[in-house]
Nucleic acid binder design. Sequence first.
DNA 1: GTCTATATAGCGATAGAC
DNA 2: GTCTATCGCTATATAGAC
Lengths: 214, 214
Amino acid sequence: MPAEDAPAPRPAPGRPKDLEKGNAILEAARRLFTTHGYDGASMDQIAAEAGVSKLTVYSHYGDKEALFSEVVKSFCEQQLPASLFEALPELPLRERLLGIGRAFFAMISSPEAVAGHRILCSPRMAASHLPALFWDVGPQRVQDAVSRLLRQRVDAGELAIDDIPRAAAQFLTLLKGEPHARMLFGCCANLKHAEAERHLEATVDMFLRAYEAR
Amino acid sequence: MPAEDAPAPRPAPGRPKDLEKGNAILEAARRLFTTHGYDGASMDQIAAEAGVSKLTVYSHYGDKEALFSEVVKSFCEQQLPASLFEALPELPLRERLLGIGRAFFAMISSPEAVAGHRILCSPRMAASHLPALFWDVGPQRVQDAVSRLLRQRVDAGELAIDDIPRAAAQFLTLLKGEPHARMLFGCCANLKHAEAERHLEATVDMFLRAYEAR
DNA sequence: GTCTATATAGCGATAGAC
DNA sequence: GTCTATCGCTATATAGAC
């Protein structure tokens, strides 16, 4: 007997596949933006890659800039490694800094992160406030977390630092260093594992020579 | 007596105003590329700004990419401060590093240099070999010069450095630092003079604490 | 060698049928 | 809510007159 009174394979007749298609669009946009840049990824390509029509993209996200903004937002939320924000005072300082450095350097070295960096500081974004927004939810949060960690080690007498936020910025700047600059300019493929590890050790060693309590 | 045998107001009848117009095009291109980016500056605008026709631009430089390449080349040649490449061993080390830092930071902080950096690491340039070329004639040359200077001070017993090229890269990385990153992302106008000076001193002090011979 | 006018193509965004 | 077809605009690069 097919007399089911309300089988309702679609619970919400109004907008059945919204979320599904919305996520497909977001993923397609993330892929195409990171591989071809902002101008290089056309709304036609994004719609085709997501398997929907172009107007569906527009009805979900308004326009291209709003779609890109959503991509950046979701990207930042899933990128920051939790290990950066734990104190772990039981670990020796050098090991703790090496751990932070390893996670941070891996994060900024991923092809998607490099591509995102390139887009966000490109001339196309100069008039937008999105880069400044990204700075607050990305680099600034990391820097604050490192400042808190340094503060603890200073209080414990392990470090002698005058200006802690500046030292945190210096540490992160050194971690990026020449390898990250070369990646931005496309001068090299990713570092080999041994080279990256050598870079991390050299960074931590230099930082500790400058700031370790004598 | 007007009997000059070859007055020749035009020495080369074949192409009378070539160099003049060529330089006007180059200057117009430099201005528009640095203010509007690579894609943002159209060949129409460049031709109009230079006071010539668009076809003249094409006949002089071939296509847009070649024109941009010429702009980068001429820009690099006139940007590098000579003071970076002098040894000046009679100056105290800290003053010498501060001088280098001041010149280097001023160079990379100029609106044109920031705009150039943005363009050269933009996704639009990812497929080109121009960024790699720029790296060799720009950052790499500076880094080599700093390496030579550090080598002298190590030989003089003032510094204790294991890996000199890496230390040179660290010094330049620190000089760029957070301020330069913020400029790239458009998070701030130029630093005030006092802030920049404080940044330079903090950089040199940290570098010396890490590498000064004890 | 230089100019005006145009060919060709791609973009973001939208109107109307279902 | 979703799709096909198209508008309006701007770009690079080129053909033909002088």
